[in-house]
Design a protein around this nucleic acid. Sequence first.
RNA 1: GGCGCUAUGGUCAAGAGGCUAAGACGUCGCCCUCUCAAGGCGAAAUCAUGGGUUCGAUUCCCAUUAGCGCUACCA
Length: 492
Amino acid sequence: MEKEVRVRFAPSPTGPFHIGGARSALFNYLLAKKSKGKLILRIEDTDLERSSRESEENIKAALRWLGLDWDEGIDVGGPHAPYRQTERLELYRQYAQQLLAAGQAYYCYCTDEELEAERQSLLKEGKMPRYMGRCRDLSPEQQAAFESEGRKPTIRFRVPEHQEIAVRDLVRGTVVFDSDNIGDFVIMKSDGLPTYNFAVVIDDHAMNITHVIRAEEHLSNTPRQCLIYDALNFPQPVFGHISLILGKDHTKMSKRHGATSVDQYRRLGYLPEAIVNFLALLGWAPPGEQEIFSKDELIAAFSMDRVAKNPAVFDLDKLNWIDQHYIRRLSVEEFYELAKPHLREKGYITGRETGKELEWLQRVTATAQEHVAYGAQIPAAVSLYFEDEFPLEDEEAKAVLCDPAVPAVMENFLRELAKAEPEDAPSVKAVFKTVQKATGLKGKAVFMPVRVALTGKQHGPELAAIIPLLGEKRCRKRIEASLAKAGVKVNF
RNA sequence: GGCGCUAUGGUCAAGAGGCUAAGACGUCGCCCUCUCAAGGCGAAAUCAUGGGUUCGAUUCCCAUUAGCGCUACCA
């Protein structure tokens, strides 16, 4: 029987959930689903200083929002619980003791100052700063002496000399390291908590992880982990180190590149399907030319051997394009739900509208659906329906209203408008036809003044769409006000 | 500094010894159109450099360069 594929996503809850983390989670998710395996969510919270429950909640909320659910782990439980590293300390201690007993690890009593001094002197000699093994062969008497000074030891792993360490990597092939470049590293901190490199091995083994798919920044740490697998006689999983996501300036994505956390994109009104689609295409290429993928299509098409080795720059333009695509697929109601928080923030709505009012709001927002890339752009796209007071955009706009034909256009337009009270685009067009006939003017000479008078701007959505939504009354008021602003006198 | 990873248009990228070097985003142009978008059509734009290997290299090897990562009692 084929061994079940078991992958994990193991974030540290130390801040906002980064878009890069989301991609790691996504690739793990896709691999799990593709191979009908399991995805485990484990929380690596051994850094007490930086970890927080709030951040853990953030991660879970973001994963759920993206639709990346997990089979075992935090919240959902499973046969290998608990899934939070700070709740598994006994396990790490046992294995640390085992290594200690076997002489594969030892207590180190060096202080920060001593280590720093060693580092500096090595640096001065032009050598690589690494732990030189000062406490490697301490006698029991020496240990006792340090203990009586009140020093709290760490436990270091005894790195074997002259050993070649080969990491089997699904995306990079086999990468070889030399153990001589690795100093004896800490596996248990003086506060009794394990370090990342230690805990990750213990847990991945305990949880029967078969594939470790994670960001490339961990590749250089992997030989350390391999050493621990070997020392403990654990079989090694297959690794897959996916490249980093870079900002526009080709450095690692950070705050100054704009939004970097999943939550920021959620708040900006991006759709989770779009983020997933975009992230999948960042560092993975489908065999064909398809760009838009539903989650099921991604699962069907995904494979690790089409994961790119090179880092990818986060392209906001493309995300916007993809998001726009998904936005267009929304129903009127769904799109209105997306718009709601943004409209409320602008003070355009209370969010509690019902009946006719709600219907009108839905029609208004629907006009923006083809034109926005994400939710936060909606208010600007519909502001003209909410703001009756507006300035004339510029001198050019004003000039449009000062054309000698304008009074006649407006008189005719308002008369026909009152007569027809158009409810839809065709009837508005009929109104314009009549006005054109009556004034003997071409389309543009009629449309432009009306547009400027109605919105203050020379650009905007189709007038045939705007006018029925504004209604005859508001149209009249706006036209009168705009003409006054331009200093044009008309007697209606 | 050491070790490691990476290198095709502005960006995501296909390619896996011989191709007019796909496709997408973006950009530009044209069409549509009251305008702006959207949409349709089209265009410009790429194999980092230097050595090998080979009849032939974007593709394989080696150097250089550049970017990134690791080198923590962070993950």
